[in-house]
């Protein structure tokens, strides 16, 4: 399966696409209670070139957590989270995590691409139903798969599966589109890796395998490939 690393099925948390990753030759490392794909290619430089052109990466095991309820924004602010003031924009936190404002009462927190942010863990612990505050955690870390699509050709690929114009000139960094991707509901957040355009895409974990296959199919004509988290970190300069 993989050389030297861990095997996903030995660990409790498993990505919905771990079999696809293993089949594609992923080298796994243990992180976040499971195995994440660190790299695919033997040649790291080649994988970086792929990621600059067009690549798909699986972030599903990295921390992400939702909050809902009518006091969500106020409560998160009190917890020191910058949640800005506009819906459908993501706000960068000091540790690199993003607070994606999905609606007036809904925020999605995603860690930095290195997965180092402790924000989700801290907030999950802070939220308590006993507090009588209407800000409730929603376990998106389990409910939503999390992929990242990177590269110059990402927008052209997305045009085959998504009706929102995601071209870099039209869809700014940290902008959010909650829309239909290959006919399933998804949250798309632009978050470039250095100077490489990149998009987080999160949606129903039960259809993760379906979308993974759709995206790989759509990527084929653009010479797309897979990227491991190590490659993504390097592009992001982390």
């Amino acid at each position: 399966m993989s050389d030297g690393g861990v095997s996903p099925a030995e660990l409790p948390r498993r990505s919905p696409v771990y079999r696809e990753l293993a089949f594609a030759g992923a080298r796994f490392v243990e992180a976040h209670g499971g195995a994440v794909a660190e790299s695919f290619a033997i040649d790291a430089a080649a994988e970086i070139r792929t990621a600059r052109r067009l690549a798909l990466a699986d972030f599903s095991l990295l921390p992400h957590l939702g909050f809902k309820g009518r006091e969500t924004v106020d409560w998160l602010r009190r917890q020191g989270v910058d949640v800005g003031d506009r819906d459908n924009l993501a706000y960068r936190q000091s540790d690199g995590a993003l607070a994606a404002r999905l609606a007036p009462r809904e925020v999605l927190l995603i860690s930095d691409v290195a997965g180092r942010s402790g924000l989700c863990k801290r907030l999950a612990a802070a939220a308590s139903i006993d507090e009588e505050i209407e800000a409730f955690p929603v376990p998106r870390g389990d409910g939503y798969f999390w992929f990242l699509v990177s590269g110059e050709r990402a927008a052209a690929m997305f045009a085959k599966v998504c009706g929102v114009d995601l071209r870099t000139g039209k869809f700014s960094e940290l902008e959010i589109a909650q829309t239909s991707v290959a006919r399933m509901n998804a949250v798309v957040v632009r978050d470039d890796l250095g100077d490489t355009p990149a998009y987080h895409i999160l949606g129903d974990v039960a259809s993760a395998g379906y979308l993974w296959a759709c995206l790989l199919d759509a990527m084929e004509e653009f010479d797309g490939g897979l990227a491991g988290l190590g490659t993504v970190r390097r592009l992001a300069g982390l």
């Binding site: 599966v161 006919r183 379906y210 759709c214």
Partner: peptide, 14 residues
């Protein structure tokens, strides 16, 4: 076209 039809699998599907 490509005929997108989302299928849902449980975590225990395999």
């Amino acid at each position: 076209g490509r005929n997108f039809e989302p299928v849902r699998y449980t975590p225990m599907h395999h």
